[in-house]
Design a protein around this nucleic acid. Structure first.
Lengths: 164, 164
DNA sequence: CATATATATCAACAACTGAGGACAAGTGAC
DNA sequence: GTCACTTGTCCTCAGTTGTTGATATATATG
């Protein structure tokens, strides 16, 4: 060791947390909840696995925070209501690219298929997708309309992503 | 131990294989591919885990045989073609009960959501569902029609089973 | 400088996984 | 009976998992 490489540990908890969240979103949407290990997520984020425990408490909490941060339906509500279907289709077709490898809908579906992540996924789906959409739609049966649209998009997603 | 219980190992490879297949179908459709361990399947079948290796070679082969044996679209083709939609809806609503806890469509969807089981699931879906349905439909675009129907049923399944 | 705190690393644990070898016990052929 | 074969049980292996405590290091404060 002629040259002493300075380890230079970047001590920035906020940035570390963000890197962990981003790596978790990519890993969970790529391989699902069970198959994405905390070691893998930490390695992708360039830090130690124990930091996940420190900052998020557990893998389940990491998944919940990553999923909640990834899901954002506001782009779908910036159009005329009659154009919602087209906006939704456009968005889902580009979702993975838009989010740099972290596809929220894919996270949701894969999470719903995992016993340990199902409950969290369904809660986030209701709170962050169906709820806001229903409120935006307004009127009678808005909740049912939002749920049906979500299901339709899920079937569309299956066709495009999971059953090629 | 006043009474000497005779161990009485039932030596019937065919029956053992069937019990393993049945237990595998129930476990895979309940918890998905990764979360259903071979030890669990063997315990449910009442035999030793190493018999899975003996009779099926690997967990993946067990999954493939269990899924192939579970999928059977022939009940959907015993009706007039115009009534196919209703027959499919009826069948999927009762699938789990009809198959005593082993739901083929659920196995397929959960399998498609698992990286290790995705390839097998998609192959079985094509060979045992879309293929036969397309042949039965006949005519132009029969393959596309069968695929779209399968996707529609998958979305319906998601609504009923995974996103409650 | 010294001290305290926040941040990151390391090593280890206990549990579980799929796989597989060694051996026992039953079954049938001769 | 003897032998070969099938079937089932037991035990172990190497790997991975989520989690956790002990420890080192950087930053802030005095």
């Amino acid at each position: 060791m002629t040259i002493n490489e300075t380890p230079v540990r970047e001590r920035n908890s906020k940035r570390t947390k963000e890197k962990l969240l981003k790596a978790a979103q990519v890993a969970f949407s790529a391989r699902g909840y069970a198959q994405a290990s905390v070691r893998e997520v930490a390695a992708d984020a360039g830090c130690d696995p124990s930091l996940i425990k420190r900052y998020f408490g557990s893998k389940e909490n990491l998944y919940q925070e990553a999923l909640t941060a990834a899901v954002d339906v506001s782009p779908l509500m910036n159009v005329e209501k009659q154009m919602f279907g087209a906006a939704a289709a456009d968005y889902f077709l580009q979702s993975r690219d838009l989010n740099e490898g972290a596809d929220p809908l894919r996270m949701l579906i894969l999470g719903a298929a995992d016993p340990d992540a199902r409950e969290i996924s369904v809660k986030v789906l209701n709170d962050c997708v169906i709820g806001p959409l229903a409120e935006w739609f307004g009127g009678d049966f808005s909740q049912q309309l939002a749920a049906h649209i979500t299901i339709l998009c899920s079937g569309f997603f299956l066709y495009r992503n999971l059953l090629p």
